[in-house]
Simulated scan of single mutants.
Amino acid sequence: MSSSSHHDYYQPTKADINYFAKHEFDERTAQYKKMKRFFSKLLSSKKLLAVMDMIMVYIKFDLGMRGLVEELDSQFGIVFDGAKDLEEFSYLYSNLNNHSRK
């Protein structure tokens, strides 16, 4: 894992594992919700969930935003309308990436 990413990884203690086993984690953070709102005006609710799932996979496996943008286009026909939309997406993606469990 250390060679595949530039991020440090959190190594939980036994107490942490016991805690997380008993408490459900909700990954729908404020950053997740902002990203979801960004796409909600473009997609149906079913496609929106699929897009958000894809984004989270890219984040969790540290696959990079460029591949995600290409995948969003090929899978869902999402093309960003100019530099402003791409810049907003990039900001939201970075923010979500920095606040997500890996």
Results as ranks from 00 to 15, higher is better:
residue 2 S to F: 11
residue 3 S to Q: 14
residue 3 S to M: 12
residue 8 D to K: 14
residue 9 Y to M: 12
residue 12 P to L: 01
residue 12 P to Y: 02
residue 13 T to L: 10
residue 14 K to T: 08
residue 14 K to L: 12
residue 19 Y to L: 11
residue 19 Y to N: 08
residue 19 Y to V: 00
residue 22 K to S: 10
residue 23 H to E: 05
residue 25 F to T: 14
residue 27 E to K: 11
residue 28 R to T: 13
residue 29 T to E: 08
residue 29 T to N: 13
residue 29 T to A: 12
residue 30 A to F: 14
residue 30 A to G: 12
residue 31 Q to K: 13
residue 32 Y to E: 04
residue 35 M to V: 15
residue 36 K to D: 00
residue 37 R to D: 15
residue 39 F to R: 10
residue 39 F to L: 08
residue 40 S to L: 06
residue 41 K to L: 08
residue 43 L to S: 11
residue 44 S to K: 10
residue 44 S to Q: 08
residue 44 S to E: 14
residue 45 S to N: 13
residue 45 S to H: 11
residue 46 K to D: 13
residue 47 K to A: 05
residue 47 K to R: 14
residue 50 A to G: 01
residue 51 V to N: 04
residue 52 M to H: 04
residue 52 M to N: 06
residue 54 M to P: 01
residue 55 I to P: 00
residue 55 I to R: 03
residue 60 K to N: 09
residue 61 F to M: 09
residue 62 D to E: 09
residue 62 D to C: 09
residue 62 D to M: 02
residue 62 D to N: 13
residue 63 L to V: 00
residue 63 L to N: 09
residue 63 L to A: 09
residue 65 M to F: 03
residue 65 M to A: 02
residue 66 R to G: 00
residue 67 G to V: 00
residue 69 V to H: 03
residue 69 V to P: 03
residue 70 E to N: 07
residue 71 E to A: 09
residue 76 F to Q: 02
residue 76 F to P: 01
residue 76 F to K: 00
residue 77 G to S: 03
residue 77 G to Q: 02
residue 78 I to C: 02
residue 78 I to W: 05
residue 81 D to E: 14
residue 85 D to N: 14
residue 86 L to Y: 06
residue 86 L to P: 00
residue 86 L to Q: 07
residue 89 F to V: 08
residue 89 F to P: 05
residue 91 Y to Q: 04
residue 92 L to I: 11
residue 93 Y to H: 08
residue 94 S to K: 05
residue 94 S to D: 08
residue 98 N to S: 12
residue 101 R to D: 12
